[in-house]
Design a binder for these strands. Structure first.
Lengths: 336, 336
DNA sequence: TGAGTGATTGACAACGTTATCAGTGAAGCT
DNA sequence: AGCTTCACTGATAACGTTGTCAATCACTCA
């Protein structure tokens, strides 16, 4: 037998409606009634039933988040920030799996919306750039917050760091360490981040008066293996780079592994820098120089934005930009 | 305007109850009626509303999972397996944050049960050994599956690998590589895994006829930093070990980092082995020798077990034991 | 042929909450 | 005093689904 509003109302000697009003913090409730209800709630250990709450159609108090079949580090960190923010606002986070290989994210979203009626959606790359998903949510009237959107960034709410500037700053920092041949390993084309980071790299080279040698740019897909491959290509050049800036941390680890396998010292023979600043970047020796994105804070901001949109009944949310941090650690050093 | 069972019933020319029966795959529905309903569902793009479904008290089709404020690698992997299994069984996974430092897991569980009415709970260490949590769930009649339980393992369903045997096998493998002084770094006391892995290590030493030198056992807490500290202690001994078996992968990475910092080669001067076999163990050079636990499969088994208990209406579930794999990789080598 | 059986179907109530609307006083205004 | 306004409260009807029970129909069996 679970306790319901009725039980609380009976104990407080009031109607269920008054109890409901207290629970929702509405006006037009006397302090006396409020106190009685509070007492009854505490005494009975009452908790609202989410189902009954969402049934009348107004709200479900559920925020949904799509997660890919492989959870990268930053997704876990994002989820952590999101779930905490949801909890403190009285919402629950439901994770929805989807197969990123099929590219049917919009269908997964539609299914989730229809069966779960979430009040809001949290979108992380590359789904945050999937226009079919945005259309689906717009049509359903479900507000959403996007992490690092690169196409039509004005739609919904968004949270991002200035990745172009971050990549520029990192490249520039390598220049200031004396590096004149700086390699770059890019990301997959469906991530807006790939283009931003490359652009920042290019911009820095131009600023520093370095020629943009296309040989120094290797393709990648944000996975360890392509970091290894990229490093092999770059370090095998007739005139190899003295520093390699990988588009993310996983690839940077691949670069470090390859360098060490080739008998090169990091940072003695080659400096290595990454991007993201997840926990993994601290679990190596030498510790990885990287750009830290405050993923958890970004997630909290995203959840906050989407909940605000629910309250306001709008599909348009703020575009927040958080600060990145350059973490210059032991994997980079003065050029020889 | 969302489509409801009513709409489907109207289009099919049947009652809502018949539609409900079709949706739930019940008997006593004619093939003709079934077809008409199916057609109407497809045509209208109808999806069941989870809230209305859970409201009558039968089921919520929600499985809850408690996650700590820091998500280790294996938790993300577990979640991945769980969410996928839930989806294919028509359930949704709700993640519930809790502050592991306060030790109030039982309260978080009680709150989740009251407001969410989940059909089942998934418990990961160390919460899977929290008896207050089990009591709470027993009292609420919510079935649960436990990952690697060490106390009162018969309660609820459980999924585990034989960690004692795994640790014994790994230690034994190091012995067979010629190592005679094998160090061990333990885990936190509130993880049953800590005791199991130490026990396996001890058992192997006894089997191989090696003396159990207490100096060779360093304390740890499954974090990178204590791997570093443990390695420092062990490698600083007058007679240092030629191999170090860390209680998990994070600490093993700490050992590798420390060895490299001290100018020792891995595996040339010291072999390093870990435990867990998460993705991280492949992102280093040399790649880490470790025990792989099939965490994702374990999660699927756990979700499967708990859903089976929901169907059967029982609080008692199967105790499944999955196979581990010894991954002998480049961080271990023949003793000098 | 009449009773019994089993399959199929539908009407109606219930689940716990919130939305809507209609009260009840008390206070403020003319 | 009579009128309006405002703060507070409660009765009742939803919300979309499933559980319960009764009704219908086609058979089978004696």
């Amino acid at each position: 037998m679970t306790t319901t509003i009725k039980d609380v109302a009976a104990r407080a000697g009031l109607s269920v409606m008054t109890v409901s009003r207290v629970l929702n913090g509405e006006r037009h409730v006397s302090d006396q009634a409020r106190d009685k209800v509070q007492e009854a709630i505490e005494a009975l250990g009452y908790r609202r039933n989410v189902f009954a709450r969402g049934l009348p159609g107004s709200r479900s108090f559920l925020i949904a988040m799509l997660i890919p079949e492989i959870i990268p580090d930053y997704v876990a960190e994002f989820q952590q920030g999101a779930v905490e923010q949801c909890r403190s606002a009285g919402y629950h986070l439901v994770v929805q799996p989807f197969d990123s290989r099929t590219g049917m994210a919009a269908q997964a979203v539609a299914a989730a919306v229809a069966s779960l009626r979430p009040d809001g959606f949290l979108l992380i790359p590359p789904v945050s750039d999937d226009l079919a998903v945005l259309d689906t949510l717009d049509e359903a009237g479900v507000p959403y917050a996007r992490l690092a959107p690169s196409v039509q960034p004005q739609r919904g709410a968004s949270v991002a760091v200035d990745e172009v500037e971050a990549a520029r700053a990192m490249t520039s920092a390598l220049f200031e360490l004396g590096h004149r041949r700086i390699g770059f390993i890019g990301g997959p084309p469906d991530h807006g981040a790939s283009a931003w980071r490359l652009e920042g790299y290019r911009r820095a080279l131009a600023e520093c008066g370095l020629a943009a040698d296309p040989q120094l740019i290797a393709p990648g897909d944000f996975l360890f293996a392509t970091g290894e491959a990229g490093a092999e290509a770059l370090l095998g050049l007739a005139e190899p780079p003295t520093a390699i800036f990988a588009g993310n941390d996983d690839m940077a680890l691949g670069v470090m592994a390859t360098a060490q396998r080739l008998g090169l010292s990091v940072p003695g023979d080659v400096s290595v820098a990454g991007f993201d600043g997840g926990e993994i970047s601290t679990l190596t020796w030498p510790q990885l120089t990287t750009v830290r994105q405050p993923v958890q804070a970004m997630a909290a901001a995203a959840a906050d934005a989407v909940i605000g949109m629910v309250d306001a009944g709008t599909m348009q949310g703020p575009a927040r930009r958080l600060d990145f941090t350059l973490l210059l650690r032991a994997s980079t050093a003065q050029a020889a």
